[in-house]
């Protein structure tokens, strides 16, 4: 599987990663190499195999519906890049 420059640009955009234009080609060739390697998976016959999403063959444990958390806003916001009036600030979102 070979990735073109446009593919890398598209994935980088999807993952919100700025890639400097000079680096895109380098990433394209590296990622293509990794994907070529990954293509070895095609050698396996998996037609009758159930996918394994998780190593544990267990089911989800459920929590009681209880409020156990208390307000820690000041602590949490002490590490935030920008806050005002208890809100996290980001550049204006246009809908």
């Amino acid at each position: 599987m070979s990735l073109e420059v446009e593919d890398v640009t598209k994935i980088a955009r999807l993952a919100r990663l700025e890639i400097k234009s000079g680096d895109v080609e380098h990433y394209a060739s590296e990622l293509s190499g990794i994907l070529d390697f990954v293509d070895r998976l095609n050698a396996a016959d998996t037609s009758a195999v159930t996918p394994m999403a998780h190593p544990l063959e267990q089911v989800q444990r459920l929590r009681e519906d209880e409020v156990t958390e208390t307000n820690q806003r000041e602590l949490f916001q002490s590490i935030a890049p920008e806050v005002e009036d208890g809100l996290y600030l980001v550049p204006k979102v246009i809908e």
């Binding site: 208890g86 600030l89 979102v93």
Partner: peptide, 15 residues
């Protein structure tokens, strides 16, 4: 919720 009132031209986020 995103609050679009003016925070110096920014958006405030309440989680």
């Amino acid at each position: 919720k995103s609050l679009h009132e003016d925070f110096h031209g920014q958006t405030g986020v309440d989680l």
